[in-house]
Design a binder for these strands. Structure first.
Lengths: 225, 225
DNA sequence: GTCTATAACGAGATAGAC
DNA sequence: GTCTATCTCGTTATAGAC
């Protein structure tokens, strides 16, 4: 197989190819074995390369983890952003979220992110890489929310950046929860579906009810803070 | 210190005390070192006992993890249930949730649950124990939600068991997210706060608006499923 | 760049004295 | 029940041949 860069070693293999195989192998290994079972040996086995190459190309297993996390996230976010731009209301946004989650689940990418997030708790270096990766998801979601809620009375009291983070973090939690209770996760997603409908319904209320709601929202919010 | 059971070994130490120290030490070790850093040696060091006692009392590190996870959760859920019974509306429920999360965060218990959840993804045995522990949280939350939403039009379209799971899973996700972005988590919780206000406001609408809302909720929900 | 071989270390787990 | 000592294995990482 020809390499993109054309670089080849004494053994005739392409360099860029090996690096990419290691990155892909890392993601796949986290997905199937968890972060705990992701060692230089298991990664190399999955990637079909020699174990020592992990250290030649990335120095440490740790650095490979970071590189793989970022690369995988970037690759997945790009197509998502395109679909996100076509969303015109909250229900479509949630539908996209579910469709996305189904895709990600099948590919195991949210699992990877969840594993990184868990591992990051006791590892500042990993935390940095994970926060960056998660931000890649959050930013476009925040943009979409801001756009969708621009004309809504709800926008006055909802903090869009905060909501975007809550949604993203919530999805990660759901993904983890799915690992121990798949049926429960389906029920949870259904419940969220209906909550989104609720917000949308509020948006579509007649002018009278809407004005009353607006006043109440403001008063109640002030009181509770 | 006198033991509950009174059992003592040749070295004069109480048995129940050592078991409890190991369980407490396990939780503390997960909290500070993550699941990855929780080894028989690190647990024993934290608990202040000999490393071999892990295997004498629990057979394997794995079994100790399960036991500690369940014990810690049960101990924490009990007082929570009492406070939950006193909640009379959704905002109080969320306020309790935030207060609880602050406590849990300070004690590191949700972190423990999150670590278990992450580890459970690649470990069926651990998954079972974690699902049981999480269910200890979900059950009382579900009861409270059912009680609070009993007289609400929202109850007709919201799936309470699903919502309870979504809330629980979401909190775990937020806890993990907090490890990599504390400020973002605060913003996310604020956003959820306001969402809860929204539901409550809908509940307090006048009879006319409420009837219109009810019809719309039914129609929209049917359409979207 | 890739391979084999191996060093250095920490992990789970056990044996046997006390 | 508790302790010390130790076995065995898997891990990261490196040295050096090709």
């Amino acid at each position: 197989m020809p390499s993109v860069t054309g670089c080849r070693g004494l053994y005739g293999e392409a360099v860029a190819d090996t690096r990419q195989r290691l990155i892909d192998g890392t993601i796949e290994t986290i997905r199937t074995h968890g972060l705990n079972g992701t060692t230089a040996r298991s990664i190399a086995a999955t990637a079909g390369v020699n174990q020592a190459l992990v250290f030649y190309h990335f120095g440490t297993v740790h650095d490979l983890l970071q590189a793989a996390c970022l690369a995988a996230t970037q690759a997945r976010v790009a197509p998502f952003v395109e679909r996100l731009d076509e969303v015109t209301d909250l229900r479509q946004l949630l539908a996209l979220g579910r469709s996305l989650q189904a895709d990600e689940r099948a590919q195991g990418n949210v699992t990877v992110l969840a594993q990184m997030l868990a591992g990051a708790q006791a590892d500042p270096k990993l935390a940095e890489a994970t926060a960056t990766a998660l931000q890649l998801w959050i930013a476009p979601i925040e943009s979409a929310l801001t756009r969708l809620l621009a004309d809504s009375p709800v926008a006055e009291v909802i903090d869009t950046p905060g909501l975007a983070r809550a949604v993203s973090a919530g999805f990660v939690g759901l993904e983890l929860y799915e690992g121990v209770d798949p049926e429960g996760t389906e029920a949870a997603l259904d419940a969220l579906d209906r909550l989104a409908v609720l917000i949308e319904v509020v948006d579509d209320l007649g002018p009278i009810a809407l004005r009353a709601l607006r006043g109440k929202l403001r008063r109640t919010t002030k009181k509770s803070r």
